[in-house]
Design a protein around this nucleic acid. Structure first.
Lengths: 110, 110
DNA sequence: TCGATGTATCGACGCTTGTCAATATATCGA
DNA sequence: TCGATATATTGACAAGCGTCGATACATCGA
């Protein structure tokens, strides 16, 4: 099914006009968080989990990295606003923030 | 010099299903090229230039970096398939490849 | 209270990246 | 042919990143 992307005029776009330094830095920070295969796989695992939410402990085995490495990457994703982390008891529930992804997507709009 | 392979089977998506390692690496390589403010500004300067094409020499002043640094960044963008470089006489004309940007954009589709 | 469990942090390590000056290569005009 | 110009390459350096083991912190069950 074809999706029609909605262009919101809130976000800077790479192709429509020259970016100033601040806009470029902000966008680059977002893309930097996406610029690692492990983080992309974590993101897709979280999005695909039931309810769109995954426990950190269930992500270590699929990506084959140590607990501290996975924790680090989840913090990077959270700092970039791509996921939220909610502590529930001993667990941390991670959820993707689709609005943030949409903003980066919009930046690549023609 | 290392070349980044172009994604031929149209466009893995981060959010629709868990990415395998190869898909994640390909997408990460694309986003890595976008993960630098200078490169984003170069990209937007090229896209905004008349005819969608810019000479490398006209890009150094706007971004305020040395000639070798700009040359390096343009090579990174070209290796990632985001621009093409065509040598014309003494000049190199850079042009954005919208299809490549569309592929990365599609990866962030919900 | 105590041990087990999930997560975050710390310290360390190689590797990569962005940057520049210097230099090399290629092309044009005179 | 010679000098000027545009670009690429090289070598070097500091800073940042991904990774791990070890450890600290927090929370639960018994």
């Amino acid at each position: 099914m074809k999706k029609i992307a909605v262009i919101d005029d809130c976000c800077p776009q790479v192709l429509s006009a020259p970016l100033d330094d601040a806009e470029a830095r902000q966008l680059a920070a977002g893309f930097k968080a996406l610029a690692d295969p492990i983080r992309l796989r974590l993101l897709s695992l979280i999005a695909d989990a039931p309810g769109g939410t995954a426990c950190s402990c269930d992500l270590e085995a699929p990506v084959g990295k140590s607990q501290s490495t996975v924790s680090h990457h989840l913090s990077v994703l959270a700092d970039a606003g791509l996921i939220t982390k909610e502590k529930v008891g001993r667990w941390v529930n991670c959820t993707v923030v689709p609005e943030r992804l949409a903003g980066l997507r919009a930046a690549l709009e023609v």
